[in-house]
Design a protein around this nucleic acid. Structure first.
Length: 318
DNA sequence: AAACGCCGCAACCGCCGAGGT
DNA sequence: AACCTCGGCGGTTGCGGCGTT
C-alpha cells in the first residue's frame, strides 16, 4: 500500500480549476514564489492540495509555457529523444523549451504513438514491426497504383482473393529485406537470396490460381519476382511507400506553415542508405512536394533508424 | 435534433528518491 | 538505521468537445 493521496484530506477540492483559483495561485506565486507547495494552498487561500497546485502551475499557469500545436521540428525532436530516453518525459521536456512533460506525454500518446503504430513501428523500441503493419492495405494500394507490376487489374478485381498466406509471405519477404535495408540484391548472401527467391516463387504460385485476368494481360506484365529483382531493396520500399495514401496532407504546424518538401525527407531522423541510387529527395521517391504525412510515415516505417542529432549531448541524459 | 462514439487534454493517482530528523 | 516529508515522475482516468450517424 502506498501513501494516502494528499487530496484525501477534508474539504480539499478536486477536478478542473476555476479562473478564480488560477488567479489566486498565480497571484500568490508572483509575489512569494512557489516555496513550500504543501503550505502554499493555505497561504494562497486555495482549497486544494499542494500537489494539485504544483501540477496546475507547472503544467498550465507557468508564464513560459508554450501553447499550441507542436511544430514539425518539435515532433521530430520528441521522436529522436524518445528513441534514446524512452518514456523519460521530463528529460525530453528539458530539451523542448516551453513544453511540459505532461504535454509531451499527452502528445506522444495521442499522436506520435498512433502514428508510429500506423507506420508499423514499435513505439517502444522504435524498430519496424512487420506484424503491426496493415499489410493487406499496403500491398493492395501499392500494387494497385504501380502499373509496371502489371498486377493492378488483378488487385482491382481480386483484392479479396489475396489470401492470408500470400500476405504472410509478403510480410516475411519484407521482414527479410528489412534486416538489411542497405543491401543491394547483388550483395545478398546466396543463402538469403535463395530464401527470398523461394518466398517469391511460392507467392507467385499462390497468386496464380486466382489470376485469370493476369493471363489476359500478359503482354504488359513483368513477373512478380521483378518486385524484388528491381535495382535494390531501397527502391522496393520506396515503391511501396510512394503508393500509400493518407489524410494529413494539409496538416499545418503552429508556425503556420505546411510541411516543406524537405520535411518529408526526415533527413535527421532517417539514415539514408549511402548505397541507394535513389536519393531521398529524388523525384522518383515519395519525398517530394506531393507527398503527404502518411506517405512519409510509410517511408519511415521501412527505413526508420534514428540517428543521434549532432547537437545533442547525451552526457546530459545519463 | 438527438444519440453515440471517438479523441485530446487536464488532472489525478500511486510510486519513488532525496533529504531531513 | 528507520521513519517522515516533500517534490517529481510516469501511468491512467474522466470530462468536454467534436464528428458521425
Amino acid at each position: 500500500m502506498g501513501r494516502a493521496p494528499c487530496c484525501d484530506k477534508n474539504g480539499l477540492k478536486k477536478g478542473p480549476w476555476t479562473p478564480e483559483e488560477d488567479q489566486k495561485l498565480v497571484g500568490y506565486i508572483q509575489i512569494h514564489g512557489p516555496g513550500n507547495w504543501r503550505n502554499l494552498p493555505k497561504k494562497a487561500g486555495l482549497q486544494r492540495c499542494g500537489k494539485s497546485c504544483r501540477l496546475r502551475w507547472t503544467n498550465y499557469l507557468r508564464p513560459d509555457i508554450k501553447r499550441g500545436r507542436f511544430s514539425f521540428e518539435e515532433e521530430e525532436t520528441i521522436i529522436q529523444l524518445h528513441s534514446v530516453l524512452g518514456n523519460k518525459w521530463s528529460a525530453i521536456a528539458a530539451h523542448l523549451p516551453g513544453r511540459t512533460d505532461n504535454e509531451i506525454k499527452n502528445y506522444w500518446n495521442t499522436h506520435i504513438r498512433k502514428k508510429l503504430l500506423r507506420m508499423g513501428i514499435d513505439p517502444v523500441t522504435h524498430t519496424p514491426r512487420i506484424d503491426l503493419l496493415d499489410l493487406s492495405s499496403i500491398i493492395a494500394t501499392a500494387i494497385r497504383s504501380h502499373p509496371i507490376l502489371g498486377l493492378s487489374t488483378l488487385l482491382n478485381n481480386q483484392a479479396q482473393a489475396l489470401n492470408p498466406e500470400s500476405l504472410r509471405l509478403i510480410s516475411t519477404l519484407l521482414a527479410l529485406k528489412q534486416e538489411d535495408p542497405n543491401a543491394n540484391n547483388s550483395h545478398l548472401q546466396n543463402e538469403e537470396h535463395a530464401q527470398i527467391q523461394a518466398q517469391m516463387d511460392t507467392l507467385s504460385q499462390l497468386l496464380q490460381p486466382n489470376d485469370e485476368i493476369n493471363n489476359n494481360t500478359n503482354s504488359s506484365m513483368i513477373p512478380i519476382t521483378n518486385f524484388v529483382e528491381c535495382s535494390n531493396s531501397q527502391e522496393n520500399m520506396n515503391f511501396l511507400a510512394s503508393n500509400l495514401s493518407g489524410d494529413d496532407v494539409n496538416h499545418v504546424y503552429d508556425d503556420g506553415l505546411k510541411p516543406k518538401a524537405s520535411d518529408f525527407g526526415f533527413e535527421s531522423v532517417i539514415t539514408t542508405p549511402k548505397s541507394s541510387p535513389t536519393p531521398l529527395n529524388s523525384s522518383s521517391t515519395c519525398i517530394n512536394n506531393s507527398c503527404n504525412e502518411d506517405e512519409r510515415d510509410s517511408f519511415c516505417s521501412n527505413f526508420l533508424q534514428f540517428e543521434i542529432p549532432q547537437g545533442l549531448d547525451f552526457a546530459d541524459f545519463m
